[in-house]
Write a protein that binds this DNA or RNA. Structure first.
Lengths: 234, 234
DNA sequence: CCTCGGCGTCACGTTCCCGTCACCGGGACC
DNA sequence: GGTCCCGGTGACGGGAACGTGACGCCGAGG
């Protein structure tokens, strides 16, 4: 579960530290060093999944930014974590009214921030529909339960195999280069040979049995999961 | 789904803010600014659907109020959300022991509070009329009494173990990552290693005996409580 | 002051998953 | 048909992930 985090913070070195730490945790990061910049960054594509917002900014107050975020459809549902320097007592009432989702008091630990970001993302993800059951021909996977079946018989997949299968299923019909699979399934900073993909595709095909034929090899390009189940019959 | 929320909170401006926000979300609100007032308000008609309770009150401790609420038939089943200032986290454990249903650490956001109120209302609505007992195969737990049995034999669980078991039971069949368990069972601001989860799962399995097999380990993912008791036989 | 229970952490052992390599087999193109 | 690679395949070593027992801390209660 990676995601895009927007950090609105005018202290450049603090912002950079956060950026570094968040990236090393697998998040994508967008920085903004002023309020106006932050507002623009919040509503540009792709919209961030979480916003970390400093209360004290040179041009706009954090509460004002929060209010404006809540006025726009694009950012209305985006969780906001407010940061306040120690001693500057938050006006809790104002904070509530503008709809921040969480608070941190400086100095805070990066660990703590990451925990809260993850928690907020989980919450949004949970309410955000996207059915957890995906069916495809004789195949069925349940993301919540982390289980997979072929013809009503459950097959035991490892964590990596499950992610790989899910990547295929959610991009069915489209070619996936090995590099694309590596960054999607293994992660951006994966230090792995492209041939590793082959091995895991093989293992996945084995476990899928006959349904392994859903995965096609495109010589010189990559892999493609069939677009329609019937194609397998051909 | 509107409902009546009783807010027991001595800080008048915070209480007023909550009242305003809850009303604008469609709830009816009743305010009480002291413990005694709150106890009276809790059992007067119509009885509230949810109670939001500050732990620090001028006259009575929040835990004491909670205890008394649980002693009265009229309020025994009413869900209670406890609010505690940061630093009083010891009381969190006590809070669950006296039968609070959820807690929030100040400063919290109104959106978070509303989400939790809705969740509790949904839960009550679903289980209303049924006893507070949850049965699952050879397992039985009583949420109000905080007791647990395996095969009609009671097992002594600590407060933490009980919450962990309850978290598993209420999300049965779905994978729980260690991070998710940490924020749900320990609280978002818990300063704890993810490996701590392992230890407590182990202790819980021990106490559950054979029924400990209900808790499955998914390597590289997290833990999953079985969806159906019969799966254990397989 | 001592003891005890609950909780978090650490270190160790084990399991099994993952990444790599080397060896083939079989298309693709001439 | 030959040659060149690309991908399938089996084996293997390292290490990540988990179970487990032990220890220390801290607050409660005597």
């Amino acid at each position: 579960m990676s995601g895009l985090v927007l950090v609105i913070e005018d202290e450049v070195d603090l912002a950079t530290t956060l950026e570094y730490n968040l990236r090393s945790e697998g998040f994508q990061v967008r920085l903004a060093h002023s309020g106006r910049q932050g507002l623009a960054a919040a509503s540009s594509d792709p919209t961030p999944d979480v916003i970390v917002l400093d209360l004290m900014l040179p041009d706009l107050a954090g509460t004002e930014i929060c209010r404006r975020l809540r006025e726009q459809d694009r950012t209305r549902e985006t969780p906001v974590i407010m940061c306040t320097a120690k001693g500057e007592e938050i006006d809790r009432v104002v904070g509530f009214e503008v709809g921040a989702d969480d608070y941190l008091v400086k100095p805070f630990s990066v660990r703590e921030l990451i925990l809260r970001i993850r928690a907020l993302m989980r919450r949004v993800q949970r309410t955000e529909g996207e059915p957890s059951l995906i069916r495809f021909g004789r195949l069925k996977i349940d993301r919540d339960a982390h289980r997979a079946w072929v013809d009503e018989g459950e097959i035991g997949l490892t964590a990596l195999e499950f992610r790989l299968l899910h990547a295929f299923l959610s991009r069915r019909g489209r070619v996936q280069t090995r590099d694309a699979l590596l960054s999607d399934v293994w992660g951006i900073d994966a230090d792995v040979t492209t041939r590793t993909v082959d091995t895991h595709v093989k293992r996945l095909r084995e476990k899928l049995g006959d349904a392994g034929a859903y995965i096609e090899t495109l010589r010189g390009v990559g892999y493609r999961f069939k677009g329609e189940p019937e194609e397998a019959e051909a």
